[in-house]
């Protein structure tokens, strides 16, 4: 299979599955009531699912062992960003705090070590 065809196959299939996932319960439950236990569980979807997505990107972004120290810097920068996000609820401030901390640490680290 040549590359462009393969890419468009991926785009079509992933796009369709994504859309069906997003539509699923909106269409399915449109004429039903959701059981209370499910509603209760769904309140914890964002906290659990977003954390599951974030943590691997920060802690283990497919790096070589030599770059482990950069992963530690990321954890520190992410904690600073998390504190800013918690108090400000601002995406922009969170990004500035997180990227700023990471760049500062990357700049300072070679001079300390």
């Amino acid at each position: 299979m040549d590359a462009p065809l393969k890419l468009w196959l991926v785009i079509g299939a992933v796009g369709a599955l994504n859309y069906l996932s997003r539509l699923s319960f909106i269409a399915l439950f449109a004429r039903r009531t959701i059981p209370p236990w499910l509603l209760r569980a769904l309140r914890y979807v964002p906290a659990a699912m977003l954390t599951a997505l974030i943590v691997p990107m920060i802690v283990a972004p497919s790096l070589q062992p030599a770059e482990q120290v950069h992963a530690d810097l990321r954890v520190l920068a992410a904690l600073v960003a998390g504190a800013v996000a918690f108090t400000s609820s601002s995406t922009l401030k969170t990004l500035i705090a997180g990227m700023g901390t990471l760049w500062l640490l990357q700049l300072l680290l070679p001079r300390i070590a």
Partner: peptide, 27 residues
Amino acid sequence: FAVPLCFVALLAPGLRSTPSLLAAVVA
């Protein structure tokens, strides 16, 4: 690194109850 930060901005403000915090830590 901006990718996880975008998700952090979305996640952190919602962690205001013990069960939410626990859900995040366990996940």
